Simulated scan of single mutants.
Amino acid sequence: MKEIIRIAVQKSGRLSEDSLSLIKECGIKFYNGTGKLKSTAFNFPIEFLFLRDDDIPGYVADGVADLGIVGENELVEKDKQVETIKKLGFSKCRLSLAIPKGEEYPGISYFEGKNIATSYPNILNTYLKSRKVNASIHEISGSVEIAPSIGLAEGICDIVSSGSTLMMNGLKEVEEIFRSEAVLIGNPGMEEVKKSIVEKLLFRMNAVQQGKGNKYILLNAPNDSLEKIISLIPGMRSPTVLPLAEKGWSSVHSVLSEEQFWENIEELRQAGAEGILVIPIEKMVL
């Protein structure tokens, strides 16, 4: 029987969407219809388990799944014996303390002797201890934002993306205690044959992510400015320079990060670059 690896992915929500999008961009084809809890890829030796995000670290630690994609917040909160293989750069958020928006906030001492509702008691407890604050932590599994309005707690500690949910519930963010993004985790005791499959998966993931972070740049440049323009778009090794039909001009092709391009765009134009095209890169292998 051909060896396969199992990867645990959140069964619904933003993290699930981002995770499956990355896997599909890696050229891996599978069916994940509504309500489906397990699926096998058609063209890669991998099986998917669709689980609750807070169950994923445990499944990976126990060896039920070889890999998992989970938020760092859940990984740290559950504190399971797993290996963090790769940060994935999506589903970024923060874990923050919040209080009713009408309250004055003098600093972290506000929470001394108070009650805080959260779904992340371990992360919160570690933070409060580091700040030498004694507070009572009330663990609840959902709808944390309602706790102050029903008298359960004076503040909350919860995941924040845009802050709109806090505002809708009459709360304001006062302390950021943890930053999170999606990570790929693995079972430390994985067999060598499975590790080789994981390496192939990582190769594909890296190619997709490197492509997303860079752009293919084409532009026309006067030959007397080539040296300056090339210094502004150095590329992976060096730019490609091709002569145009019009004498005294060349076409310059290069790859660089989008951020670097925007930093240099004005200098490129001042150096005489024309007809600048910025093209997305689907995959990039270094």
Score class of each variant (00 low, 15 high):
residue 2 K to P: 13
residue 3 E to V: 10
residue 3 E to L: 09
residue 4 I to R: 12
residue 6 R to M: 11
residue 7 I to A: 02
residue 7 I to G: 02
residue 8 A to Y: 00
residue 9 V to P: 01
residue 11 K to W: 08
residue 13 G to W: 05
residue 14 R to S: 15
residue 14 R to V: 15
residue 14 R to Y: 15
residue 15 L to F: 05
residue 16 S to L: 06
residue 16 S to E: 08
residue 16 S to Q: 08
residue 18 D to L: 13
residue 21 S to Q: 14
residue 22 L to W: 03
residue 23 I to R: 06
residue 24 K to R: 14
residue 25 E to K: 13
residue 28 I to E: 01
residue 29 K to S: 14
residue 30 F to Y: 09
residue 33 G to V: 08
residue 34 T to W: 13
residue 36 K to G: 02
residue 37 L to M: 13
residue 38 K to E: 14
residue 38 K to Y: 10
residue 38 K to V: 10
residue 38 K to R: 11
residue 38 K to D: 08
residue 38 K to L: 08
residue 39 S to R: 03
residue 39 S to C: 05
residue 39 S to M: 02
residue 42 F to Q: 15
residue 42 F to R: 14
residue 42 F to M: 13
residue 42 F to W: 12
residue 42 F to T: 12
residue 43 N to Y: 03
residue 43 N to K: 00
residue 43 N to F: 01
residue 43 N to H: 03
residue 44 F to G: 00
residue 44 F to P: 00
residue 46 I to T: 06
residue 46 I to W: 05
residue 48 F to C: 01
residue 48 F to G: 02
residue 48 F to W: 08
residue 50 F to A: 04
residue 51 L to C: 13
residue 51 L to I: 11
residue 53 D to E: 15
residue 54 D to P: 04
residue 57 P to W: 00
residue 60 V to W: 06
residue 62 D to I: 07
residue 65 A to C: 05
residue 67 L to Y: 02
residue 68 G to W: 00
residue 69 I to D: 01
residue 69 I to P: 06
residue 69 I to C: 07
residue 71 G to Y: 05
residue 71 G to C: 07
